[in-house]
């Protein structure tokens, strides 16, 4: 309705049922703020019927859409408010489980930006994550640091538009980019990052971690392990990427 900003929220999985309405909303040029909760395998024991694993791909594909994926409660609050000022369909993907608060309440999160959480001149690889995988990426970075491998970690909370400058800088600095997402490997965070390296002369060595197999019921920790997106999988993938040079 004119003068109002509609917010709609349901499980990320069940927004797939609204796909046609959302598609038509873009034809209408409607401004609509959509929140998909309980995203990914990280919901745990409820099983695959409840898991949104295609939502990033769908919302990224919508015409002139915005896709946001916060990793903690303060970031979620800021981005939820920021959506009210966006045009078109905007999508915010949230995580079900209790998640560590990484950022202070005064931090700012511009749409189209990212947060570099770990960085040093000796970084040999960049891990790009968003949402729940940010926490896995930080765990992996700690373990890699213990092994003497410095890595950069980017929280790519704005999946569309994507922070091309920061990604390209990280690629130039480290030469290797590893993405990790709680989503099928197609159309999500990894592809958003890969798209940032089109039309560039120097493409980094790229690898993508996404959900590997159809999940069942399990704890969130077991789910991420089974999906191949937990800190152990990240450390292994990082080693492969570093060896393969």
């Amino acid at each position: 309705m004119r003068g109002w900003t509609p917010y709609v929220a349901t499980f990320a999985a069940f927004l797939s049922r609204a796909a046609d309405f959302l598609r038509m909303a873009t034809v209408s040029g409607a401004r609509l703020c959509v929140v998909g909760s309980h995203a990914g395998v990280s919901i745990g024991p409820d099983g695959p019927s409840q898991m949104g694993l295609e939502d990033l791909a769908f919302f990224r594909a919508l015409w002139r859409s915005t896709v946001l994926y916060p990793c903690d409660a303060n970031q979620t609050a800021h981005l939820t408010a920021a959506m009210a000022d966006l045009s078109g369909v905007s999508y915010l993907r949230t995580t079900r489980g209790e998640t560590p608060v990484l950022y202070g309440p005064a931090e700012s999160f511009p749409v189209g930006g990212s947060k570099v959480l770990r960085s040093s001149p000796g970084d040999r690889l960049t891990i790009v994550a968003a949402g729940v995988t940010v926490h896995e990426a930080l765990l992996a970075a700690d373990r890699l640091a213990d092994l003497g491998v410095a890595v950069r970690v980017i929280d790519l909370y704005s999946v569309k538009p994507v922070d091309v400058a920061t990604l390209q800088q990280a690629a130039a600095d480290t030469g290797r980019v590893l993405t990790v997402e709680d989503h099928w490997p197609q159309g999500g965070l990894g592809d958003a990052v890969f798209d940032a390296f089109t039309r560039v002369t120097c493409v980094p060595r790229l690898a993508k971690l996404g959900v590997l197999a159809m999940p069942g019921s399990a704890s969130p920790v077991e789910q991420r392990q089974h999906a191949g997106i937990d800190s152990t999988a990240i450390v292994e993938a990082a080693h492969e990427l570093l060896l393969d040079s």
Partner: peptide
Amino acid sequence: SLRLPEYEQGDEVAPGPRS
């Protein structure tokens, strides 16, 4: 005026609509 909720760093909070 909008006042956003504030969470303390290090706490464990579900970021979604359930929190």
